[in-house]
């Protein structure tokens, strides 16, 4: 069978501006659950148009390179199977770059601000030298448990890209930065004395911009409860 694709194209060197290009690729029906959106894009690049541009690296959801907007939702192309996209009402796969970030070319966006915001929340252990080099810090499984979920973040940008507050206010740190902040702030080994919370409490950039739209929860490919994390940070900011 033939599967129809509509892929967003943009190259500042060309005159056309942004447009959707139609492609089709053939797949055996039985193979649909084997074929991912990333596999399809690679095939399109090889078979149809070598200038089609997107990022990828690990191919199995661990590096965070390939987040994009697929049939209206932010997802990892390498973990999205065609069979899950196509149905009676949906016969085509539509792929666009992650919203909310400047487009560099086709499906490649500039994630500079995502990583800048990450730096602002101090993505490291503050004051980590607690023991002599011969010994580890102790941390019980109970102490580790609260941050376990947040350590899964792969910085793909899907959550921040889906956030209406971020679309309107580029100073807003966004859900990815909050998940990362929570991961370090709630680590039993971290000794920050409010410096991270100060950033998170900022009027324009901080957690108070979250209106609980829950887009970010839906977008996260690692099923992190981002809104839940932000709520915890809000409570901490209030001194609970």
């Amino acid at each position: 069978m033939e599967i129809a694709f509509e892929v967003s194209r943009y190259n500042p060197e060309e005159k056309e501006g942004n447009f959707y290009q139609k492609f089709s690729i053939s797949a055996r029906p039985g193979n649909l659950d084997d074929l991912t959106v990333l596999d399809s894009l690679i095939r399109l690049k090889e078979e149809k148009d070598g200038s089609l541009t997107f990022r990828h690296s690990c191919g199995h959801g661990s590096c965070g390179s390939c987040a994009m907007l697929i049939n209206g939702e932010n997802r990892l192309a390498c973990k999205t199977h065609l069979v899950d996209l196509l149905s009676q009402d949906e016969s085509r796969v539509k792929v666009s770059p992650l919203p909310g970030f400047p487009v560099i070319k086709d499906l490649v966006v500039d994630l500079g601000s995502l990583f800048e915001h990450d730096r602002e929340i101090k993505p490291y252990l503050v004051g980590s030298d607690k023991t002599s080099p011969e010994e580890e810090n102790l941390q019980t499984p109970e102490e580790l448990a609260p941050i376990q979920e947040a350590t899964k973040c792969i910085m793909c940008g899907a959550c921040t890209s889906s956030c209406p507050t971020y679309w309107d206010n580029k100073k807003y740190l966004g859900p990815a930065a909050f998940v990362r902040a929570f991961r370090w702030e709630s680590d039993s080994r971290d000794e920050s004395e409010g410096e991270r919370m100060e950033v998170l409490n900022d009027k324009r950039g901080g957690v108070w911009g979250c209106n609980k739209v829950f887009n970010c929860n839906d977008a996260c490919p690692k099923d992190i409860d981002t809104v839940g994390v932000i709520e915890k940070l809000k409570r901490k900011a209030l001194g609970f």
Binding site: L125, P133, E136, T140, I147, D187
Partner: peptide, 21 residues
Amino acid sequence: GGNVIELERMGVPFSRTEEGK
């Protein structure tokens, strides 16, 4: 030993025993 403990002290969330080792 020293090198992995350094990693721990840089914040790697290594899995732990019940006592936290």
